[in-house]
Design a protein around this nucleic acid. Structure first.
Length: 757
RNA sequence: GCUCGCAUAGCUCAGUUGGUUAGAGCGCACGAUUCACAUUCGUGAGGUCCCAAGUUCGAAUCUUGGUGUGAGCACCA
């Protein structure tokens, strides 16, 4: 046996467990299950993933306690995230998504993701995670898609799915819609233009949207403008004179600008809400590529001006159009002033950083209220418990808003919404496809079918946009020849929100019957709404039962200085590098000891090093026993001198067993880890063992101490599985114990030591 | 702007329902050494528990206010 513990042997230990099928559920004990939050299939491990050690501790512990235990791994297709990565890869070849039809693009991304997956699996193994790989699930596996379709169908049957025009956050660069949750904001300085607008002066940073103005709004109590409320005024629009109604609403801030606001319902969420409330028309003037498109502008009084100006701005970018509009007002002498230093917050795409363009598009929605209410009750009545509990109030607050969930995404990489449109019943479907010659063609179904076969369109289909009034059929397969598929895919969270159903194979799977509801859902608090809340809602909706009984929100892993890790800051620590240097065990326990749920934990090399030393300490205690045994043990002898020390250590061990078990039961992982560390190093090795050293050749003494040591190995195993199992194997080789696997031994319970009289 | 954390030794942080002398790791100072382990062992220094007021026999812990700091949500033409 080497003088120091060599953590490079960890992979051999993992193989030992795998070959013994030690991670698969065994026996007839009470079921205990955890699902690993699925990492992105094509990503590599980051520091946050290492926190899943919490789950490994739980399953290893429960497995030892005799529960029929399973921890199921899987990977997420990460819809738009993966597509974004792939598009960057395409860009290197001078191509973009517009060069491919949907099917080809999907298959290419599939290949790409598959080539890049597998890495994360190896990395999770390096951390020692006792995941049952025979059950691993990928978000696009056919049984997953089937379940997702079933859920969608049921929602539709229950009237919880609807289509509507809605103002959405649209990223023209990424070509898709985002939920409000997915949008980030940044401060930006833009000129604010003050423009004479009929009898008023309005202030705006976006003059180019004025083509879509449908009203002017003031505060009802504003004395400056009260006389105008309810009337209509003629204003100079960017296309010439037009007439707008004046509405009053409490939402208007009298102190902002001039207290008069132009209302552009199609391009501002706030204005859109006003339009709904006051029944104003909604006129889109920017298309999904972020270009000005004035085809929807109608009710204009001056058609000559329209034709002239329209041609100058049509298809310009919003930035260029803004210059044109400003110029127009300047020439007319209506530009009152420009505030160049106006700072405001703008919505940006969290991935590309591109400005978000609020657009009105047809979208698929899920009605939240009927789903959210039972989900709120489940937490209120304690069917689901949160650790730490303070996240419950955030959960209520968010779910209680009942904001309907927009589930359509204009990406290819994902689960397609299983809807089909008849081209004969819906001649106005807006279609974009690649022709046989690779040309990108756009038009309505009616226009295109006059010259092209439906077959060719279907083959080259890139995107289809159906009016909200379109008739559709829900089906996983094509209903008949005249149909074209919906091209939108589901929001990733719609499918991952069914993870407990899909991994366990709802409704007929044996695993579903055995393991649903799962015991614990452990994740970080940042996806509480995205993911956890959705799983509770959809789990309850489909099965009537919550998907998990406990939600544990583990620490966020930060860098050594407590800063959040991010690529832009350049402070990202690769956990695998730490594992290679100090061993997985050392990393694992360093993340658990001294951390509390809901608070950050720093990944500190110094701390990990300390626990690497602890691994070595454990190892050398084993060496001590082995060498002692090789020297020979004496059967009898006067052991009276050591009786007291032995009794004390047995008593303390009993206390330790109770305490560690109790702490694990209460999710107090840090307390359990620290007391094990303290007991083993201080109470046991440095104090008791030192005192008893000279008597260790006596068999009775040896056995008491050795027994205690074995108990420590078992208690520590969930936290530091590799070193404890390595030692267990060494002890087997030395014939100090029978050859077994530590992972399969029983969790210690209190014992009265038989050697003590 | 709204909501929620956090503030304890030089550093990173524990401290469960209020209850002896407030703890750990690292760091620091001094010392030991061929012993299972120098990835070791021993001894020690180091605290206004952010500030103020309050509740209490008793407050790091509970209440209120303040300061600093972090996160989440909303978002202004």
């Amino acid at each position: 046996m080497d003088k120091t513990y060599d953590h490079r042997l960890e992979s051999k230990i993992y193989a030992l467990w795998e070959n013994a099928h030690a991670f698969e559920p065994q026996g007839d004990g009470e079921p205990y299950s955890i699902l690993l939050p699925p990492p992105n299939a094509n990503a590599s491990l980051h520091a946050g993933h290492a926190m899943y050690v919490i789950e490994d501790i739980l399953v290893r512990w429960k497995r030892m306690q005799g529960y029929k235990t399973v921890w199921i791994p899987g990977t997420d297709h990460a819809g738009y995230e993966s597509q974004y990565v792939y598009e960057k890869h395409l860009a290197k070849q001078g191509k973009s998504r517009f060069d491919f039809d949907r099917e080809t693009l999907y298959n290419d991304i599939f290949t790409f993701v598959r080539e890049n997956s597998g890495l994360i699996e190896d990395q999770l193994k390096k951390l020692g995670f006792s995941l049952d790989w025979s059950r691993k699930t990928f978000m696009l596996d056919s049984h997953v898609v089937e379940t997702v379709y079933k859920t969608f169908e049921k929602l539709a049957q229950d009237g919880l799915i609807y289509r509507d025009h809605y103002i959405v956050n649209y990223c023209p660069k990424c070509g898709t819609t985002f939920a409000d949750l997915e949008v980030t904001y940044k401060d930006q300085q833009d000129p604010m233009y003050y423009i004479q607008y009929g009898p008023f002066v309005i202030a705006t940073v976006r003059p180019e949207t004025m083509y879509g103005d449908t009203a002017i709004a003031v505060h009802p109590a504003d004395p400056r403008y009260s006389a105008w409320i309810g009337k209509s005024v003629e204003v100079e629009g960017p296309l010439g004179p037009t007439t707008l109604p004046i509405i009053a609403d409490d939402e208007i801030d009298m102190a902002f600008g001039t207290g008069v606001m132009k209302v552009t319902p199609a391009h501002d969420p706030h204005d859109f809400a006003l339009a709904k409330k006051h029944h104003l028309p909604v006129i889109s003037v920017i298309n999904t590529r972020g270009k000005i498109e004035l085809s929807a502008v109608s009710n204009l009084s001056n058609t000559n001006a329209r034709a002239e100006t329209t041609s100058t701005v049509q298809n310009l970018s919003t930035a260029d159009a803004r210059k044109k509009v400003v110029e127009y007002y300047k020439e007319k002498g209506l530009l009152v002033k420009i505030d160049e230093k106006y700072t405001h917050r703008v919505a940006v795409c969290y991935k590309s950083g591109h400005l978000i363009e609020p657009l009105v598009l047809p979208n698929w929605f899920i009605k939240m209220k009927p789903l959210a209410e039972p989900a709120i009750n489940a937490v209120r009545t304690g069917k689901v418990k949160f650790f730490p509990t303070r996240f419950e109030s955030q959960y209520y607050e968010w779910l209680g808003k009942f904001i309907d969930w927009p589930i359509s995404r204009q990406t290819v990489w994902g689960i397609r919404i299983p809807v089909w449109y008849s081209t004969t019943e819906n001649p106005d479907l807006a279609i974009t496809y690649l022709s046989k010659t690779g040309e990108r063609i756009t038009g309505t179904a009616q226009e295109l079918l006059a010259t092209t076969s439906l077959e060719e369109i279907a083959k080259g289909l890139q995107q289809l946009r159906a009016p909200i009034t379109a008739k559709y059929v829900i089906s996983s397969t094509k209903p008949s020849d005249e149909y074209l598929p919906e091209t939108d895919t589901f929001d990733t969270w719609f499918s991952s929100g069914q993870w407990p159903l899909t991994t366990l194979k709802y409704p007929e799977g044996e695993d579903f019957k055995t393991f649903y509801p799962t015991a614990v859902l452990d994740t970080m608090w940042d996806i509480l709404f995205f993911w956890v809340a959705r799983m509770i809602m959809l789990g309850l909706y489909m099965t009537g039962e919550v998907p998990f009984k406990t939600v544990y929100l583990h620490s966020m892993v930060t860098d050594e200085k407590g800063q959040k890790m991010s690529k832009s800051k350049g402070n990202v620590i690769n956990p695998i590098e730490i594992v290679d240097q100090f061993g997985a065990d050392a990393l694992r326990i360093s993340l658990v000891a001294g951390s509390t749920p809901g608070n950050p934990i720093a990944m500190s090399r110094e701390k990990v090093k300390g626990y690497r030393n602890f691994s070595n300490k454990l190892w050398n205690i084993a060496r001590f026993f082995i060498m002692q045994q090789e020297k020979g043990l004496e059967e009898s002898g006067d052991s009276s001198a050591i009786v007291e020390t032995s009794a004390q250590i047995i008593e303390k061990t009993n206390t330790l067993i109770t305490s560690v078990t109790k702490n694990l039961d209460r999710f107090r992982f840090s307390d359990a880890a620290l007391e094990l560390y303290d007991f083993i190093w201080n109470d046991f090795a440095n104090t008791a063992l030192e005192q008893a050293k000279e008597f260790m050749h006596q068999k009775e003494t040896f056995e008491v101490f050795f027994e205690t040591y074995l108990t420590c190995l078992k208690l520590l195993h969930p936290f530091m599985p590799f070193v404890t199992e390595s030692i267990w194997q060494e002890l087997g080789t030395a014939k100090l114990i029978d050859r077994t696997l530590l992972i399969q031994t029983a969790w210690p319970t209190q014992k009265r030591a038989k050697m003590i009289k």
